[in-house]
């Protein structure tokens, strides 16, 4: 379990990194935290010819708030996210999900941008950025563009990034007042990829009815599954046991989970329903009682 031969270059600046990527294209991978990439290299499932190490690019790490928008640099490590009071205050949904990501040793090294660019559909953070309705900034040596989170994830381990692009920043809107969120997952062991996980954002109108709901599931499809449309019947409705059951049923119907080593398709569908109900109740409670 040793990586195949490779060329390693430590980029000294973002421009340097992007120039190298422009030169080597698809042959090269960026090495961020490496916590997903290096295991696959050790199994020789991934054999990048060139690794461009971007760990020295400290400009790409950091968390900032600008009004109702949270900016997170792609090289921000989970360790920093977990310990950031601003993030806990502004995006409790993300903070709630962080402890479920592997284990402290992985979170000390792993980065948000690296995780999103790896695009594992079972991973937590893709579902979080989709549920939050975030957008992602991609840069190449020549240009820059924003990609909506829901458009970023194209397939298992596949993103909308071009060969010459790097994900450099994640921008997430802070929830509006009378919002509640919840992240939950069912994993065999703490830190495992979940059999199914859910990220749910709920906002209530002044009368207590649902004014918006966003749901993203991890482990339930080939990408993080945006089930917001399936839940949209709740919008404008009062929330009660029956309405919650309807949302769960609707989400269950809308998804086509792939099944995995720990859960069959059918069990995943069942768990998704369980999680929708539990997360919706929790988010409702939080939205109501702040």
């Amino acid at each position: 379990m040793k990586p195949a031969p490779l060329k390693y270059m430590a980029a000294t600046s973002l421009d340097h990194a992007l120039r190298l990527k422009a030169d080597y294209g698809g042959e090269a991978s960026f090495l961020a935290g490496g916590q997903s990439l290096i295991p696959t290299m050790n199994f020789r499932l991934a054999q990048p010819a060139v690794l461009i190490d971007i760990n020295q690019l400290s400009d790409l790490a950091g968390i900032a708030r600008d009004g109702q928008t949270i900016h997170i640099g792609a090289m921000t490590r989970y360790r920093a996210l977990e310990r950031d009071p601003l993030l806990a205050d502004a995006l409790p949904l993300m903070t709630e999900a962080l402890p479920h990501i592997a284990h402290p040793q992985i979170r000390n090294r792993g980065t948000l941008g690296g995780n999103l660019a790896h695009a594992d559909p079972a991973s937590e953070m893709p579902a979080i950025v989709v549920a939050l309705g975030g957008r992602l900034r991609a840069r190449s040596a020549a240009a820059e563009r924003w990609i909506e989170a829901r458009d970023f994830f194209v397939g298992p381990l596949t993103t909308a990034l071009h060969d010459d692009e790097m994900l450099v920043e994640i921008e997430l809107p802070a929830p509006v007042p009378r919002s509640g969120s919840c992240f939950m997952e069912v994993a065999r062991r703490r830190g495992d990829f979940a059999m199914v996980g859910i990220a749910l954002m709920l906002t209530l109108g002044k009368n207590g009815d649902c004014s918006s709901i966003r749901i993203a599931l991890c482990g339930a499809g080939e990408t993080p599954v945006d089930a917001s449309d399936a839940a949209s019947g709740l919008i404008g409705q009062p929330i009660d046991g029956e309405a919650i059951g309807d949302v769960a049923a609707s989400v269950q119907q809308s998804i086509d989970p792939p099944g995995n080593m720990q859960a069959s398709k059918e069990f995943q569908r069942h768990l998704a329903g369980v999680l929708v109900k539990r997360a919706l109740r929790a988010a409702w409670e939080r939205a109501t009682h702040g």
């Binding site: 379990m1 040793k2 916590q35 050790n42 690794l51 190490d53 284990h103 000390n108 090294r109």
Partner: peptide, 29 residues
């Protein structure tokens, strides 16, 4: 395990525990 699960190779890297099997040697420079 050399895939980051077992934790036997945990070291402190700049003071924080990390898996030594999930880093390349030149990264320690």
């Amino acid at each position: 395990c050399e895939h980051g699960v077992c934790g036997a190779c945990t070291i402190l890297f700049d003071g924080h525990p990390v898996r030594a099997c999930l880093m390349l040697a030149p990264q320690a420079n």
